[in-house]
Amino acid sequence: MNFDYTFHWRPVIRKLPELLEASLVTLQISVLSMIIGIGIGLVLALLRMGGPKYLSWIATAWVETARNTPALFQLFFFSFGLGAFGLHLTPYLIVLAGLSFNNAGYLAENFRGGFQAVPDTQMRAARSLGMSTTQAYTRIIIPQVFRIVYHPMTNQLVWAVLMSSLAMIVGFRELAGETQAQAFKTFRIFEYFAVTALIYYVMVKMILGISRLLSWRLFRY
């Protein structure tokens, strides 16, 4: 074991603006995939709890595939797999679709758990007070479910940020991809990835901090 390596941090510092810009791309694609994932996840959860048989079967297949295969596998499906149908997505869309698919699968299970945690009597009580079904859902059920799934949702956002680093493999230039591109240009691989690890750490901590502040504001009562 001989140590004859000199660290060179200057090339990394010089490229720091690029890395920070790429980290904004990471945040953007993660948040976007979360929004899409929440929408689809809600639909999947409702379908699994009581939809037409074949639709509920599709929802189950989606959830089980998302949860039982690696996220990277899902990205490969959207890049090579759709390529087989002659559908060639741009790297950005591949990553967005892959992340959204994964988020939707995990969130659907969270939502289902949330809906099941709210007792049926809440619905009946709301209906007997003269609310319509829509009113009962939007004013009574959804707020309670939201409170239950808030923390799992925050965790999923953190996961989305961490998962988006897989974009490096399909050639999209978010933070990890940009780091790889810069690192292999200069062969300062260790230094670049050390700085990137730090940026990811700060991003995750920021998300958790903001979510905690929001939860104080949202759940005052």
């Binding site: 140590f3 961490l162 990890a176 690890a197 750490y201 995750v204």
Partner: peptide, 24 residues
Amino acid sequence: DAFRSVPLIIQLVLFYNLFNVIGL
């Protein structure tokens, strides 16, 4: 907590290179 807050893929590349850096 740091291990949980950094993507695994970054950790893999980082430490694999660290092993090389220290000559392992």
